[in-house]
């Protein structure tokens, strides 16, 4: 890749620049900063949309009373039940069990505290999901 071939499409980097290695005119490698690449943005967009769609799906499920808000907040933090289990210090099978709203509603305050701390949110936030 030559220096003038380094993609400079303003995309999702949001002002953050990324270093790329490229050949300059004398055939020497230099670091060139890139502000983004459209084709990369397509790929990243697909992944981000994917996450957003799953999150939206979960949010609706929570409002419909099928899942507990814990599931929503876990996905918002890009965690899996296993990661959340290790982070909160609660066995993974219990975490998965707490995704059922009727069981989540009966949880002790101490357990909720651990979840809230693991997800870095307040307990009030943990009990609810945004309405839209």
């Amino acid at each position: 890749m030559k220096v003038n071939e380094v993609p400079q499409d303003i995309t999702y980097y949001e002002g953050v620049k990324r270093a790329c290695f490229a050949l300059n005119d004398e055939g020497k490698y230099v670091v060139v900063t890139s502000v983004g690449w459209d084709d990369e943005a397509v790929v990243n967009g697909l992944a981000v949309d994917d996450l957003a769609a799953t999150l939206e799906h979960t949010r609706k499920a929570v409002l419909a009373g099928v899942k507990s808000p814990l599931c929503y907040h876990m996905e918002r933090r890009q965690m899996t039940p296993e990661i959340l289990a290790k982070t909160a210090g609660i066995a993974a099978f219990r975490v998965k069990r707490h995704f059922r709203p009727e069981i989540f509603a009966k949880l002790k305050l101490s357990v909720l505290d651990r979840y809230a701390q693991a997800l870095a949110i307040t307990k009030q936030e943990l009990m609810t999901v945004p309405q839209k």
Partner: peptide
């Protein structure tokens, strides 16, 4: 497509300096 996109993210996005570290190795 999702799997392919996942692969491309490993090639370009994870701080590789372009083309899955190949340009850095050339340097």
């Amino acid at each position: 497509c999702r799997h392919l996109a996942g692969t491309v993210r490993w090639v370009e996005e994870t701080g590789t300096g372009g083309a899955g570290f190949r340009y850095m190795y050339a340097a």
